[in-house]
């Protein structure tokens, strides 16, 4: 009896230890920043799809790759995570992070910020889920084209304000070096060109996805391009995301010439964003933002969930109803959102 008690006593810490041992369901989510509107929506969607089945721990790197490195290395070194979802700060660091994950054979899903393909190919348990920025850029062009009713109808229309037959465009870009920035910017103009428009890029500026930066940069640009009657020469404002579009709108709303009766599209020029974030949708309803492209966070979250589930439970990734580009990349296609689609 006494011996049994002693055994129990000795076993107790072991039992405690084993009860503490995690099962196969710890997922760490590393975000580049905690104040990015779209990232927050995506995080929320991921949280919802993983809720109940998995424990999700979220880290934010405050836009510093060195902080994210520390977070990742501490998680990997202490073996706390069965799978990592990484919204990398600096896509050039992806190689190191993939190598680090490979030391413990931890699967890793990059989101939102695309690592380099050459890095992705060095490890079999790495995937990317993000948007299709090329298609998003093209959809921005399509929205504008739909509004103008084709290039022929644009010429000399009220949208061709200076009646020169050219489309004067300003680009508000996201972050320098971000693949979405470059692709959205490039392919929106590319598509307009393909649709026959003569595009005159007045200015393009990097605003790091944020409202404030866009507000300040756009103030300069707006004032740089005024005709002799102090009317804006801009005929189309393309923004890499809705947040920056809202920043531009906020500036326009401060102008003396702003008339609450008219939509911004009619009064100044159409503004088209990407993401269809909550702020963006609000702006569309208010008639400030003409259109946006849904960067479908829920769809991405679902894809992330499916890949995670397959990786953690040794299911064949190829049996999922997902299309991988280069065997590694999931890029969700956006959809057009305007006031009229919202009504529908």
């Amino acid at each position: 009896m006494k011996k049994n008690k002693l055994k129990l006593f000795l076993l107790l810490p072991l039992l405690l230890l084993t009860s503490c041992k995690q099962e196969n369901n710890n997922i760490s989510l590393f975000l580049y920043a905690a104040d990015d509107e779209f990232i927050n929506e995506l995080t929320l969607a991921i949280n919802q799809s993983f809720a109940g089945d998995y424990d999700l721990e979220i880290f934010s790197a405050n836009r510093r790759q060195s902080i994210q490195n520390r977070q990742i290395s501490s998680v990997i070194d202490s073996n706390l995570s069965n799978l990592m979802i990484v919204n990398i700060v600096d896509r050039l660091s992806s190689k190191s992070i993939i190598e680090k994950a490979a030391t413990t054979n931890t699967p890793i899903i990059f989101i939102n910020r695309e690592p380099l393909l050459e890095d992705m190919l060095t490890y079999d348990k790495v995937y990317y889920v993000g948007t299709n920025p090329t298609y998003e850029g093209e959809l921005q062009a399509t929205i504008a084209d739909n509004l103008f009713g084709g290039y022929q109808n644009f010429i000399n229309s009220k949208y061709d304000k200076n009646k020169d037959g050219k489309l004067q465009v300003v680009q508000i870009k996201g972050e320098q070096g971000h693949q979405d920035t470059e692709s959205r910017s490039y392919y929106s103009l590319n598509k307009l060109n393909n649709l026959g428009y003569q595009v005159d890029l007045l200015s393009s500026v990097f605003c790091d996805w944020t409202i404030n930066s866009a507000y300040n940069e756009f103030r300069n640009i707006y004032n740089d391009f005024l005709d002799e009657n102090f009317n804006s020469e801009i005929e189309l404002l393309l923004c890499n995301n809705d947040e920056m579009a809202v920043g531009c709108i906020n500036y326009l709303l401060t102008l003396d010439s702003y008339n609450e009766e008219l939509s911004i599209t009619d009064q100044y020029f159409p503004i088209i964003g990407v993401d269809a974030s909550n702020n963006g949708l609000e702006a569309i309803r208010n008639g400030y933002l003409y259109g946006s492209v849904i960067n479908d966070s829920e769809m991405q979250a679902e894809a992330i969930y499916k890949i995670s589930d397959a990786l953690l439970n040794n299911k064949d990734i190829n049996n999922l109803d997902l299309t991988f580009e280069d065997g590694k990349f999931i890029r969700t296609n956006g959809k057009i959102v305007t006031q009229s689609t919202l009504i529908e």
């Binding site: 790759q65 050039l92 660091s93 190689k95 190191s96 070096g177």
Partner: peptide, 11 residues
């Protein structure tokens, strides 16, 4: 102590 150097592909 190893870290990446941001904006470079260096370590």
């Amino acid at each position: 102590y190893i870290s990446t150097l941001s904006n470079t592909r260096w370590k």
